[in-house]
Nucleic acid binder design. Sequence first.
DNA 1: TATTACGTTTAGAAGCTTCTAAACGATGTA
DNA 2: TACATCGTTTAGAAGCTTCTAAACGTAATA
Lengths: 179, 179
Amino acid sequence: MDEKLGSAQGALIQALGRQSAFWGLGKTAGEMYAVLYLSDEPLSLEEVARSLKVTKGNISIAIRQLEQLGMVKRSRKIGDRRVFFTAETDFWQIAHSVLELRHKPEFAETFTMVNESYKYAEQAKPSPEKGIAVERLQALQEFYRLIDGIVETTLSMRPEQLKRIIKMIKIIPLKEKGE
Amino acid sequence: MDEKLGSAQGALIQALGRQSAFWGLGKTAGEMYAVLYLSDEPLSLEEVARSLKVTKGNISIAIRQLEQLGMVKRSRKIGDRRVFFTAETDFWQIAHSVLELRHKPEFAETFTMVNESYKYAEQAKPSPEKGIAVERLQALQEFYRLIDGIVETTLSMRPEQLKRIIKMIKIIPLKEKGE
DNA sequence: TATTACGTTTAGAAGCTTCTAAACGATGTA
DNA sequence: TACATCGTTTAGAAGCTTCTAAACGTAATA
């Protein structure tokens, strides 16, 4: 491989490995994606393993995560028993499925528990503590709904539409700061 | 403490501990915040430690994180050597500082490395591989800029303004799906 | 000054995650 | 059927994170 391309690959492996770990996907998953993302042709499991200097077993497990998130596609060549992998390049779609499959269930679970907490608080016998608890749990629920609204709305748009909206918002003076 | 309030607290501790871990803050930090969030008065370090059945040292370290993120305020009472803690209840402000202090530096670092990767790829000698690499690294850079724009714009608004925008977007038919 | 009551730091234990090496299973080929 | 070549699974090693217990530093009080 071209030396400069090798450096480019190295830098991207570092970059995406880091991001991937940050988002809770594990470093290897991001590194694998980086390798596939820069390849002009599908790579076999062993090729990926060799690029990253890790074992096949390691790749086998990590790649499943990536497939489940729609970040990697599996393909085959006729007359070849090996399995080949390709990076999904549509980041918007990836964002969709990551939020849908990883973040949404986590949020839903938490939201359920907050609701439960709220129900308990309501049943407590009157006291200043109860007052504070009920009030704050309501505020928390509302915040969750706001976040959910933002994410849902954002994902309902295509990137081009979003860019337009962002431009619009930047232009609008937003005078009403002291609401 | 009222039994129901105890249950409410337990549920919230679970909920926020979970979320906190999910966002990379560590379980204890979220649990501490939950305890403070439901309290109608500032709590001492030892009271928090007792509520969660962990050691003081543990709390001492975790609370520093929360302070740095602006999620908890420290206060004192005259004639009392103890330090008391209060939960910041403005989630919007918390979102701001968490994104600013935790996510932004991480993104900036990654973005720098992606740029570096791009520069290397440009310097490679012409080949199909190079073509793919340059093209894709550009796409990745653009995606990063989009995400950054979304976050910056979102944070530049007050929650009320955001809600209005979200409502607007939901009403607009967005016919142009096949762009 | 000695004592007490607090928060902080630190060394090490416990637990969890992630990796490797090797066995295993399955599938295509002679 | 026997063999070779893959991907997958698994038991255990290594490394990292997070917790505890205890020592330590500090500031107020007598």
